[in-house]
Design a protein around this nucleic acid. Structure first.
Lengths: 213, 213
DNA sequence: CGGGTAAGTTACCACGAGTAGGTTACTGCG
DNA sequence: CGCAGTAACCTACTCGTGGTAACTTACCCG
């Protein structure tokens, strides 16, 4: 089998196995076996288990970037642009939930480089978002633009992960909440301040500080 | 040495080693050695490497909860309350950056359960935030409150991680951006829509889709 | 002193990442 | 045709590290 073809096949199988088992529990032996190939071939093509993961992330990153930027391209109204981008983002997460759940949800494993790879993906997203914000709020200083961009990205990620465990929120609804919050914050919803229950007091489920041990 | 004392010592050493090496690269042998104890003792006390990590996370979680809830307790004004909570959060991250960087930044490792543990920590935070939002915006439907809460948590995390690589943003500034964004979104900053550069066109660093291979 | 228990140890196993070195098979060339 | 070179590929191994079984010491209590 030709190199390019094998490489593609290996990547597909790897993505699948990683999604099924999680990165750590996935074994190179299994991936190799499912490819109908022996382990050293994987190392020939990807160098290491981390390398294989990185390649999978890079591929996903490219797909995500393509999906979101395509959705935003050619839209004139910035409000609409953000909406389209957000919607594309959440729909992409729906379509690839299995693999992205692994990336965003299961924390900590990583090859140190994995974090960097995800960080790169975020930089791509911030490259899409920041210009829109800057264009919308010309008076906003650059650091604020950057900070808001990060906040938006974090909000998107969190909402995406949260949605994995709660099927009651469609991609469109998530995108709507996100855009709404981005534009208005809480401002549009403010009523007269009601009393806020004091934190730190034991609640019905018991104090969370205690339940740790 | 008494059990409680040993346990505490082991936890301290483990946190340190995890922070130094990262979870994956940290070996149980090294942790044991640095404790001046043999490996099976670690297993006696924590069951597994994951268990040890979980214990460390639980401890950090409790500390974080305590710090933020203490900062918010006894404050009457909700606006002020959010500000205090955010500030406490970012200051906590400053103080514990090494360990929390590992938790939030390095993605993927995990024991499947680690993700759950972090999720629990987020639930604690959402337990602090959601009531404030609900109190502030009495008309806001519950699902929206939940969604906004997640967005805020995600924004905080992202900003915290981002700050790790960019020392130019103080905890107070981060907290200010976060509260400002939470209250106003972009609304307060909107100018007349300027033209937004179209996404998807190659930029100076080259197309990110290409740079993957 | 003797028994029970809790802290602690050595010496091991299993499993999975990564590698050395050899084998097949196809291509191009005299 | 026969031979060299090369590229895909495999068997069989090493080694680090998580995890465990079985034994040893030391203390407390009657």
């Amino acid at each position: 089998m030709a190199r390019a073809e094998r490489e593609r096949q290996m990547l597909d199988v790897a993505k699948q196995v990683f999604a099924e088992r999680g990165y750590r529990a996935a074994s190179m032996d299994e991936i190799a076996e499912r490819c109908g190939v022996s382990k050293p071939m994987l190392y020939e093509y990807f160098g290491s288990k981390d390398g294989l993961l990185m390649a999978a992330i890079d591929a996903a990153k490219a797909e995500l970037y393509e999906a979101t930027s395509a959705a935003m391209a050619g839209v004139a109204d910035p409000h609409e642009m953000v909406w389209r981008g957000m919607l594309a983002y959440f729909e992409f997460m729906d379509a690839h939930s299995r693999s992205f759940a692994m990336l965003l949800q299961e924390p900590l494993l990583g090859p140190a480089t994995t974090g960097d790879a995800l960080e790169q993906a975020r930089r791509q997203q911030s490259g899409l978002i920041a210009p829109v914000i800057a264009a919308l709020a010309p008076g906003l200083p650059a650091p604020a633009v950057e900070a808001y961009t990060e906040i938006i990205i974090g909000g998107c990620e969190r909402l995406a992960v949260w949605r994995l465990g709660d099927p009651g929120l469609s991609a469109a609804e998530a995108a709507r909440y996100m855009t709404d919050f981005t534009w208005n914050g809480l401002k549009d919803h403010l009523g007269q301040p009601a009393p806020v229950p004091a934190p730190g007091v034991p609640r019905s489920e018991g104090s969370p500080v205690e339940e740790a041990g």
